[in-house]
Design a protein around this nucleic acid. Sequence first.
RNA 1: GGCGGUGUGGCGGAAUUGGUAGACGCAGCGGACUUAAAAUCCGCCGGGUAACACCGUACCGGUUCGAGUCCGGUCACCGCCA
Length: 883
Amino acid sequence: MQEQYEPSVIEPAAQRYWDQHQVFAARESAENSQPEREKYYCLSMFPYPSGRLHMGHVRNYTIGDVLSRFMRMRGKNVLQPMGWDAFGLPAENAAMINGVPPAKWTYDNIAYMKKQLQSLGLAIDWDREVATCRPEYYRWNQWFFLRMLEAGIAYKKTGTVNWDPIDQTVLANEQVVDGRGWRTGALVEKREIPMYYLRITQYADDLLQALDTLPGWPERVRAMQANWIGKSVGVRFAFTHDVRGADGRLIDEGKLWVFTTRADTIMGVTFCAVAAEHPLATHAARNQPQLAAFIEECKQGTAQEAELAQMEKKGMATGLYVTHPLTQEQVPVWVGNYVLMNYGEGAVMAVPAHDERDFGFALKYNLPIKQVIDVSAGVRNDESYSLTTWRDWYGDKQHGICIHSGKYDGLNYQQAVDAIAADLKAINLGDKQTQWRLRDWGISRQRYWGCPIPIIHCPSCGDVPVPDDQLPVVLPEDKVPDGSGNPLGKDPSFYQCKCPKCGDDARRETDTMDTFVDSSWYFLRYACADNSNSMVDARVNYWLPVDQYIGGIEHAILHLLYSRFWTRAMRELGLVDVAEPFTHLLTQGMVLNEIYFRKPAAGRIQYFNPTEIDWQTDDKGQRTNPTLRADGQPVEFAGIGTMSKSKNNGVDPQKLVELYGADTARLFTMFAAPPEQTLEWSDEGVQGAHRFMKRLWRAVYEHVKLGPVASGLNTSELNAAQKDLRRAVHQALSKVTDDIQRRRIFNTAIAAVMELMNTLAKFNDVTPNGRAVMQEALEKVVLMLSPIVPHVCHTLWNELGHGSTVIDQSWPEVDASALQQDTLEIVVQVNGKLRGRVVISAQATEQEARAIALADENVQRWVEDKPVRKFIYVPGKLINVVV
RNA sequence: GGCGGUGUGGCGGAAUUGGUAGACGCAGCGGACUUAAAAUCCGCCGGGUAACACCGUACCGGUUCGAGUCCGGUCACCGCCA
């Protein structure tokens, strides 16, 4: 065995072995004599082929790889695929800069990044690789889009869309962040264009309720999805009025519609508030310049819920009144800057007594406050209702009872809502209604580098679907966008076509699909990537659902929601059996690094890579005075932030692998933080991980150097030290198994192995029994670490004398007898404070333990002759003497 | 404002069901080896004390024999909210 650990030699060798023996090729059924194994589909979110891997990829794919390899050793039939989310804007942007077609840029990037992924030693079945920009893949986007069109799940409508003036494209609502395009940051404009939508709102209730069937998902992701879907159950009803517009007709047919979740407070309405754009506001402003000015001011304001909640509530009376549908009272109408036209009805009823926002508004503008709910019943008898100070319990609907509400007096929340909704329905002015925040998913994009929407526009037949036998509509791959709109619209060879129905000249749709479409079902296609005859086949039902999905928290809402929707649509159309595609979800934290900069008197801030910085340490060991190594001059430390090009704090995985090897990179990313938390990069930490690799190598080297172990392990002949070592080995094994299998935490599993290695280093017994114990210990260490650092374990397993390979080994079993102890150390507390430790027999009774504990010198010092009031005994762990 | 989360040494983090707070690693300090350095190995490493005592898991209070962990309240920070 070679003395030096050389990852640059052993890593390619291990990878070559895996490759030649096709060990990661997944099969759907049992082969030859192999017994039927349970399937395990381990999926990592596929990357966008941006050019190079970043550390986030390394972290993501290492987590997936550790789980895949672990599950394989646990006897599962594992599928771990990989592919490319290959359509999208960055390719077009790169094309504009370099003058190269997006297709070439994308395919080149895929080739390079695939090599990078392979250098990490991931246990991927590359035979199933998919790239969403290939016609073999996206033809099924088109095919299924047509099925959805037939089923009414997809439809066309003209609507107001968000127009990004820089990217020249439509954005989904969720792609607008703070009123700006999510990629460009440009202020979004409104445009009216025809586009295709998917009826995700039809599935809103199911998508919401089924979140409860996903205990394997993080709580916060489920909360974010529920929040996004935004179900609110309430009552939609109308105040009547006879306000007529300039044309003499009643505005909105004489009805001011509102939606409320607190219909039980309807008798407490003292005014209504409408949005600045509401027809009543517009009407009232015609001859009130002051109101018109206020409306203009409101229109400048935000449309963001978050900002809305924080800004100062302002309003102005319109002078108009509407009639309360149940009391016939005249209710004044105000314009409020906190009411949004495109949310709900653009108008709200105001109940100042029981809504904090309305309460503040009423105080500010001196509007009446009428209490109609009494919460004192059993809950709040210590405080009374005040007209000047808001208390949170004014809005309590759990314990409230209607008062001052005529026939509704005495009803609780649900009873009151039911009764009031029924009364409103009876007079035809309202009914119960469920409102959703979620909107239908607009998928049309006026972009080139995406999947063409398979529709032909015929002057006489209208919108005609491309017949199935003419699919796919192939995207030409030679175009170079120049920023002046969609190249497809300028290419007659693409858009000129014949109508499939009447054969006349027609024009092909030049919009392409949102790239979220591509990623909404790629995990299904991995199961049958080689099938050129159908979108999915029986193999999909074998592999699905995904047992473990791993990816970034940034996809917690959109991608995961769209995938859940798409899978449901496919199930509805009889293509797959499952509704929920992902059983367990792990959202890994981001990779952070330190940020350093200098701010010159003139010019832009200059950022420095953390590797170029030197620190000094003060007498407390704390770092001070960062300087730039190149010139020794001070730099500013700006804290920790996500790795990014603009902050010049990225770490190139390629260089890391070249310098230390893939195993070190894998070990560090798994060790530095739990998978769900952020990971702070540390070059010293990487060196520490590399140091451990070398220690591991040397431990095996020192052992192997002594020649083959003479005798097998005979557990009945071991001395105390040998037994202790065996116990340490099996304790570590027990912990590592639990950490990976149940807890999905790898840093503590690695820590346990490190601790074991520290113990091993102190064990210098070269007797036959001692060496046999050491052989077992090292074998277990190699097996335990093989999912995490597979290359070195591949080599070490053979060096330990095995003809077989570690990839084919089963996960080791804990030997329960090795864990047994004759004596136990028990912690003794006196009055809850640690005062001593005693060693007792493992079989000792509580009486015996008590006698030994009380006899202990340290314990006696604290107990003295005080009477023992209480004696707590936690067997095997702790004694607490209360005196 | 709403929802969700977090708060532990100089740093990343550990403590899994209420039972030894600080595992493991990094940094630092001391030592061995070396002409020297690097590498490697050994030891120390929350505050406090001569040594104990004592103090210590954001803050205030509670439950308990016992609280980082459970409960009530406060503060700070992070994430998400067409």
